[in-house]
């Protein structure tokens, strides 16, 4: 129903009712900013990139095909904008050797992130999340915080559904390695 309303808004914006774009700003600016600030880790840059995301969305609104929800399309623009920025700035994050991830068994991960009462563990987890790369941060933010489905993530990250599952799993493994070492 919401998606239907959004399509009507988009149609009216394209017909000249520019002020209706404020609806999308009100609805999504905080979530888009939240995702970008986790990738960029600079408030000023993140705010500028959030603005860029909305301006790009407005410019390209006529290309929105409605084959996905508006929020998925918007997050895709936001993710690409943030990733281009990290590439330009050449942000370096600590790398973890692939062999270390391979040593983590699936059993070790089972239930590891289920307990949410241990404060020390939560602090370690926060630190570990900060050490993930841009794509992984965006992935887990959208999956866990914005409750995006794997299908939607596949559209946002331009990956296959299977690839999204693999990357989410690897991100969890990476968090496990960062926390246990």
């Amino acid at each position: 129903m919401e998606n239907k309303d959004e399509l009507i808004y988009i149609k009216r914006i394209l017909e000249g009712e520019t002020n209706l774009f404020s609806y999308f700003l009100q609805r999504y600016s905080n979530s888009v900013f939240s995702m970008i600030v986790r990738i960029i880790q600079s408030r000023e840059d993140a705010e500028e990139l959030t603005q860029d995301t909305f301006l790009k969305a407005f410019k390209k609104l006529d290309t929105f095909k409605a084959d996905c929800t508006f929020s998925t399309w918007l997050f895709r623009i936001a993710y690409n904008t943030a990733i281009s920025f990290t590439r330009k700035k050449k942000m370096i994050l600590p790398a973890i050797e692939e062999s270390m991830l391979d040593t983590v068994s699936d059993d070790a991960l089972t239930g590891f992130f289920e307990e949410d009462e241990n404060e020390k563990k939560l602090q370690e987890l926060e630190k570990a999340i900060a050490q993930l790369n841009a794509e992984e941060k965006a992935l887990i933010t959208l999956f866990y915080l914005e409750a995006k489905s794997v299908n939607e993530l596949a559209v946002i990250f331009d990956l296959t559904i299977e690839n999204v599952r693999v990357r989410l799993f690897r991100a969890r493994k990476k968090l496990f390695v960062l926390m246990t070492n």
Binding site: N19, S29, F33, L122, L125, A130
Partner: peptide, 25 residues
């Protein structure tokens, strides 16, 4: 993975500025 959700929620993220929407509009 409740712990990841809680850690993400408790991570202090700065707030978007108040006049962001006006500026963008």
């Amino acid at each position: 993975d409740k712990a990841i959700i809680k850690a993400l929620k408790s991570t202090q993220t700065p707030q978007i500025s108040v006049d962001f929407q006006t500026q963008t509009m």
